[in-house]
């Protein structure tokens, strides 16, 4: 089981969305949450601080969630951080690309705290087992 104190990075260009995700995480008891407004700022944060989990939106300006995922997996210091991708529709093509790039799981907007917990637990289970 993941520690409730683990540090989570929420990446989305839309402030309201970051707040929604943060709020859902709060419901689940995760309070150690930081935010980034796009892939490149996220990458800078990831390189400067230690994070235990990444929840990132896909469609963002400048650096997309997919590019962030690729960059994270290529970085030897970051490559093991669990990565949950948020997508708009369950487009199979998208999921395929994300899986190719090494995503741990994905969640389709809009989702509830319960769904988010399920996805996070699944990632945790897999890593644990």
């Amino acid at each position: 089981m993941f520690d409730q104190k683990m540090k989570i990075l929420v990446v989305d260009d839309f402030p309201t969305m970051r707040r929604i995700v943060r709020n859902l995480l709060k419901e689940l008891g995760y309070l150690n949450v930081d935010e980034a407004d796009d892939g490149s700022t996220a990458l800078t944060k990831l390189r400067n601080e230690k994070f235990d989990f990444i929840i990132s939106d896909w469609n963002m300006p400048k650096m997309t969630g997919l590019d962030l995922l690729k960059a994270v997996r290529e970085d030897s210091n970051l490559k093991d951080i669990p990565f949950l991708m948020v997508t708009a529709e369950a487009q199979k093509e998208n999921v395929v690309l994300a899986v190719q790039a090494g995503v741990n799981n994905y969640v389709v907007k809009p989702f509830t705290a319960v769904t988010l917990k399920e996805k996070m637990d699944k990632i945790i289970e897999k890593l644990g087992g």
Partner: peptide, 9 residues
């Protein structure tokens, strides 16, 4: 082609 937002990366 359906790549969501990937086009401007």
């Amino acid at each position: 082609r359906q790549d969501e937002g990937g086009t401007q990366a």
